[in-house]
Simulated assay, not measured.
Amino acid sequence: MIYGFAAFTVTFVFFHSTNNFSILNKTNESYLCPYFEGGLGNHMFIYASLYGIARDKHMTLLLNSHDEINTIFQLNVTKLRSTKNICSKSFIIQERLPCTYDSEILNFDRKKVVKLKGFLQSWKYFIKYEDEIRKQFVFERLIQDQAQEIIDSHINKYKSENDSHRHFTIVGVHIRRGDYLRPDNKELGYNVAPMSYIEKAFTLFRNKFTHCVFLVFTSPNKNDKKWLKKNVNGPDIIKIGTNKRDVDMCALSQCNHTIITVGTFGWWAAWLSNGTTVYYKNVAVQNSKLRQYFSEDMLDFFPSQWIGL
């Protein structure tokens, strides 16, 4: 699939020559190289932000065809068997604040091969190209089928035990705790969402919509599973077993609305769902190092239309 735009064209290009640079360099294009680190949510921020930056600066964003994100989504950028010949010689720029939009890091010479390192966790880097990003962040068909099967099996069982003729509003809930409770992360300033926040979020949706059903997902961390089993219960709550992370994100994205706690995984599930999103706003301890990574109002990270509790 090829998407064409008036000022910029993004295409699938697969080169199998070992001399990729000599082929590409004939076009006199300038190149932007990613540096992927972290989990799936991190990779999605890195890709989306670099895509937006490449569009703004009329550069070619390069990916390795084997990059993990390519196995989950069909992305509309230049893909090479290996970017090593080009990106190993790149001019490296390091971001300063991972969760804040920083226009200064964009003031680089577009004629150079540039590798922008950092998590780039601000929707402001790609908001102008939101429609293009949404067209790309469509899960592969097998992932979609597995996710839909999870939703259907639980909702059908729920309907069989309740009024099968009702229209249910499905709210996806993502609860993450485990790694945020590690001593190093707590020292940095990470918070986890308390049960009081989750109860407030449930109440908000119960008051806003009729016949809500909450599909609750959590990480594979055994302590998170125990915490979920003990604390999150109710007649309209369905706890989902842990699946592959891409399948879980896809399932969350197919829900009508979203409640998230902490982390980029939940952030992207909510963004893809594109319904009403409630988020835990105290993700970083005040005056901590982590809090300094965010803008003062945190709205460089959280979209303003989301509801913070």
Rank of each mutant, 00 (worst) to 15 (best):
91 F>R: 05
70 N>C: 15
111 K>V: 06
301 F>L: 03
66 H>G: 12
49 S>E: 02
213 V>W: 03
187 E>P: 07
172 G>T: 01
233 N>Q: 09
78 T>K: 07
243 N>Q: 10
250 C>S: 12
14 F>E: 14
301 F>D: 03
127 I>S: 14
21 F>Y: 11
223 N>P: 01
189 G>M: 09
141 R>L: 14
181 L>D: 06
271 W>F: 15
300 D>T: 05
28 N>L: 10
226 K>V: 08
179 D>K: 04
85 N>A: 13
102 D>N: 08
98 P>E: 13
168 F>P: 00
107 N>V: 02
68 E>D: 14
216 V>N: 07
298 M>F: 14
136 Q>L: 05
237 I>Q: 06
219 S>C: 04
200 K>F: 08
151 I>F: 01
95 E>K: 09
198 I>S: 07
146 Q>T: 08
196 S>R: 08
228 L>Q: 01
233 N>R: 08
130 E>L: 14
153 S>F: 06
58 H>R: 09
251 A>S: 06
19 N>D: 12
173 V>N: 11
37 E>D: 14
38 G>Y: 05
183 P>R: 06
32 L>F: 09
132 E>T: 11
136 Q>T: 05
239 K>E: 07
303 P>D: 12
72 I>L: 01
148 Q>T: 03
57 K>Y: 00
161 E>G: 02
56 D>F: 04
213 V>E: 01
62 L>R: 01
122 S>P: 11
127 I>F: 08
82 S>H: 08
293 Y>A: 15
106 L>E: 00
5 F>V: 10
281 K>E: 15
269 A>Y: 00
241 G>K: 11
114 V>A: 00
69 I>S: 07
282 N>F: 07
97 L>P: 00
140 E>R: 08
146 Q>P: 02
102 D>A: 01
130 E>N: 14
119 F>I: 11
160 S>R: 08
39 G>P: 05
136 Q>I: 04
247 V>M: 04
94 Q>L: 13
35 Y>M: 13
53 I>G: 05
42 N>S: 05
155 I>C: 03
155 I>F: 04
93 I>Q: 03
134 R>Y: 09
17 S>T: 12
158 Y>E: 05
247 V>Y: 06
180 Y>S: 11
104 E>F: 14
193 A>H: 00
165 H>W: 10
270 A>G: 02
112 K>S: 04
166 R>F: 14
20 N>M: 08
93 I>D: 03
55 R>D: 03
125 Y>A: 10
77 V>C: 04
77 V>W: 03
219 S>W: 01
102 D>I: 01
3 Y>Q: 13
50 L>E: 00
152 D>S: 12
86 I>K: 07
172 G>W: 02
14 F>R: 06
24 L>A: 12
122 S>E: 11
194 P>W: 06
156 N>T: 09
274 N>Q: 04
304 S>R: 14
112 K>Y: 03
263 G>M: 02
26 K>S: 09
308 G>N: 00
251 A>Y: 03
285 V>E: 10
13 V>W: 15
210 T>I: 09
49 S>T: 02
151 I>V: 05
199 E>C: 10
89 K>N: 13
122 S>W: 12
1 M>R: 02
30 S>R: 10
229 K>F: 09
238 I>E: 02
50 L>K: 01
184 D>P: 04
5 F>Y: 12
54 A>K: 05
249 M>H: 02
152 D>N: 10
